[in-house]
Design a protein around this nucleic acid. Structure first.
Lengths: 195, 195
DNA sequence: AAATAAAAATACATATGTGTCAGTTTTTGC
DNA sequence: GCAAAAACTGACACATATGTATTTTTATTT
């Protein structure tokens, strides 16, 4: 595949992302995407065969970008508490965002029948996240930063709270104060009192 | 409206509920419902004008039935801890259920554009739930059963965890043990150690 | 610049859903 | 038992989405 072709594919994914941010997943059609891209329907089918396939590519892009933010902002000698707080604040930013977010689309994708059972990107992301936080807590306890006797359970609890906040934010709204209260709660459970 | 007409409406709602349990919300069409009801398309439109309207009626029915379960199982002299535990275990039952549940449909409805902004049943239910639990905690503290210094915050936290569990159960599955751990966690935060 | 290859656009065939309405059947009241 | 009313049906007109096939445009090669 030519270089130009690769560029075009990237352009389609970036443009489609905007559409998904605005409309979610389920209601987005191939027509919506071609219109935003200013290409024809036939043209799009040359590159991608469904909105689900395009959405998976968008998720991949998002995941890469999130990794970049993370590695660009965490110094080598950061403490476990600093890293956890950075993570929680990134989540806070994401869930308070009213636009430029894929959250709604991701939830719709969750429940869409078209979702290929084998490529459950979301489950993988969740499990990875839990594992990372679990290890972070372990390190924190070993360092004497945290107090905790059930790493996995606590990590899971954190993700349940985050998921609950996310879906609540989408459907009925949450304030920054509500999120802060939950973050303080999480840290407090690990023995850290926030100022 | 005649008595027979009322009966038919109820029949439609109960039958449609089955369809929503099987297919969620978004993919259910009026055709799906008439086929299950063994009536004609035109006939259904005499009673209801959209799947969204029917779904709202289904939610109303579910809500009534849940109230009945509650009032039928909580004795007058139950302690706050008993009531809270009953509530949490009902939630557990619901979220571990693999079939005969509207959870998927409710989430899809959440995100559907058709959802009439004014009749946000789900938000109302959430807020009501939080308020009930908040008052329950207050009573429990006054009785000396619970230890808590932020009733509303704690009530909200409980619902975030429950929402997180629900969506996790739908998308990647949770085990009874995971739910029990969260319930124990919630009770422990209120100063109650479960056996 | 002509021939060829690649990319893109348009038109088509198919499928599925909606809401309505003319006609039919069933129920009801006398 | 029959006329009027109510309930119900199936087909129609319309709208929108999909995936493909043919035509047109653009780019590349010699």
């Amino acid at each position: 595949m030519s270089d130009k072709s690769e560029q075009k594919k990237k352009y389609i994914i970036e443009t489609a992302r905007e559409v998904f941010m605005e409309k979610g997943f389920k209601t987005v059609t191939m027509k919506d995407i071609v219109e935003r891209c200013n290409i024809s329907r036939g043209g799009l089918y040359l590159y991608y065969e469904s909105t689900a396939q395009i959405f998976l590519e968008v998720l991949k892009l998002e995941s890469q970008e999130a990794d970049d933010v993370f590695s660009g902002n965490i110094s080598e000698d950061a403490t476990a508490a600093e890293i956890l707080l950075f993570f929680l604040n990134e989540q806070k930013k994401e869930l308070l965002r009213k636009s430029n977010t894929l959250t709604k689309a991701i939830y719709e994708f969750y429940f869409s029948e078209e979702r290929p059972k084998k490529t459950n990107v979301i489950k993988r992301q969740f499990d990875e996240g839990v594992k990372i936080v679990e290890n972070l807590i372990r390190v924190g306890v070993e360092n004497g930063e945290f107090v905790c006797d059930d790493y996995k359970g606590t990590a899971r609890n954190i993700f349940y709270v985050l998921e609950g906040l996310k879906i609540t934010a989408q459907t009925m709204g949450v304030t920054a104060a509500m999120v802060d209260a939950e973050i303080a709660y999480i840290m407090q459970n690990l023995g850290i009192e926030l100022a």
